[in-house]
Design a protein around this nucleic acid. Structure first.
Lengths: 306, 306
DNA sequence: TGGTGCTATAGGTGAAACCTATTGCCTATA
DNA sequence: TATAGGCAATAGGTTTCACCTATAGCACCA
């Protein structure tokens, strides 16, 4: 018993005539006779009582036709659903994002993506760099917006945005009026406010200090870059922050932002599991990201070192 | 997309390993690879994301697996149902019967049949000979218990019971004490009580009179042979009745029964549509009829004259 | 670096679904 | 009563395709 035979039976039940049914099924009449006989043999029941000039279902045939029609319907629905997925009229996408990109990048991207693919359900997972790496490597997200460097070797990435890292200081800070770039080495002894462990930007901060040969004096740790900035504005210390989070002057609790002499940058990347199939929906999301994310670069795929 | 491929996908989803899944499916591993690729091509979606050492469903795959499992289940149920029908663990049977046989034959047969095939649902249709002929010829009953002669040429029949036709007279009738057979010709001028038109036994009555060269004086017509007998017992007239309906002496309203000199008989037959498939259930019912119907003869199929 | 385990590809084989042509049956019409 | 037309079943040949074995190619592990 296969779907083709079921289709044949249902059509024959509709037409009650082998020749006409065969025609609708785009096969020759003998093929229909053969297939029906074969099916009846296999099932051990006669499905149609037939003479030279009448074809009508037996009781078993009636039962078969009814159930077969339901099954064929379900198959058709399945086929339709697969087609919808293929055509991206439907889909599901789980995107991992750092809180920073969630607040500053995705708000530009999601509305556009939603407008283009209204039936693709996007789920956003916000977490720390390290957690997101785990989730993406484990397939719990389709892709993630992360910043380099990545720790997990099973991730592939491609750069999305390269943005400058700047220094935030309190308005009354001794450097607040500085017009030229600040050397990191000048910050020796300053009270630093940094992100908590697991957050990618914490490592960037510490690496900058390390490069400059200073040991940062950490006076506060927060899980939230916005809190960090507010604490800086309140005079509790200084912090490195990525360009995109900078608050407009005049906003309550806005620090003063200074460029660093070395103009260091960090790179935001689109990371996905290496070797894993990227769904059409995921590829479309990446494309939308490139088009609409502020400061997004043209694509040039990279790969994490093994 | 066919059921085989769906089965493959479901099994592969269970095993998450081509080689093991292929083994369970009793095919070689390359066949599974090929079939899956083919299906994915047809659907236009990747169902499994696979590398050399991992196989896992994509989102589309997850959807497919879920629905395919439901469909395969329905197919399995259908197969089971057909098997039940084939094995007569289930079935449906519509039996036509005259009121007489319904009252006097089937009560012996139905309990036995029910005990043998408890899951075969038997529907009884009681009607006149002519209506039953129509129903059976039109396929609304699988078989019918009728008496000869049959009018419809599209029916086949085989004799079941040959029973004597006797004369019922009121207890005070002039013939009530007769010990020998009564000649039909003696009944000239007697008031006759007969069945209504459409009932087979009415024709038998009239034919008997015709043969004997008398014209019956009909004083009552009833649709019910029991009413006829009661009317006879009440002294309203005389009637021919089939042997099987004879009431035991001493019963209220019992007529006196006399044999006829010519010992005429009528033949009860099992009629079904000529050329039409007799279901297993129908054949089983006929067999049970032969075994359990009182006075049933051994089979010897006949055919209605065209 | 070679061994192991895995999926994909290549090439060949056999079953089976399909086709055309025909038979055999029934019905309707001259 | 013969005959033509419509129908399903059968016969015989062709092609498609699911399957097989063998092997390639890749990733991981010792």
């Amino acid at each position: 018993m296969d779907l083709r035979q079921m289709q044949y039976v249902v059509q024959l039940a509709k037409e009650r005539n082998f020749s006409r049914a065969a025609e609708k099924l785009h096969i020759a009449q003998p093929s229909l006779s053969q297939q029906l006989s074969k099916l009846e043999n296999e099932l051990g029941v006669l499905l149609f009582s037939r003479t030279t000039n009448s074809v009508e279902p037996t009781h078993a045939g009636t039962v078969f036709i009814e159930k077969a029609a339901v099954i064929l319907d379900a198959v058709e629905q399945l086929r339709q659903e697969m087609d919808d997925l293929a055509q991206m009229r439907k889909g599901r996408l789980i995107v991992g994002s750092l809180p920073i990109t969630g607040a500053h990048v995705l708000p530009h991207v999601l509305p556009v993506f939603r407008a283009r693919y209204p039936e693709i359900e996007v789920t956003l997972v916000e977490d720390t760099t390290s957690r997101l790496e785990q989730l993406t490597a484990g397939g719990q997200t389709d892709l993630s917006l992360l910043s380099l460097p990545l720790g997990d070797p099973s991730l592939t990435w491609e750069p999305l945005i390269e943005e400058e890292i700047i220094l935030a200081v309190p308005p009354r800070h001794r450097l607040a009026g500085r017009t030229g770039g600040v050397e990191v080495a000048e910050l020796s002894g300053e009270p630093f406010i940094v992100l908590k462990k697991g957050q990618g930007f914490r490592k960037i901060t510490l690496d900058l200090c390390l490069e400059a040969g200073i040991e940062p004096r950490i006076v506060f740790e927060s899980g939230n870059i916005e809190t960090v900035q507010s604490l800086v504005a309140a005079g509790m210390g200084i912090a490195f922050v990525p360009q995109m989070v900078a608050r407009a002057p005049g906003t309550p609790f806005s620090p003063v932002y200074l460029r660093l002499a070395s103009a260091p940058t960090r790179t935001l990347v689109i990371a996905s599991r290496s070797g894993r199939y990227l769904s059409k929906a995921a590829r479309a999301f990446i494309e939308t990201l490139r088009e609409t994310a502020p400061g997004a670069a043209t694509p040039s795929p990279g790969k994490s070192g093994g």
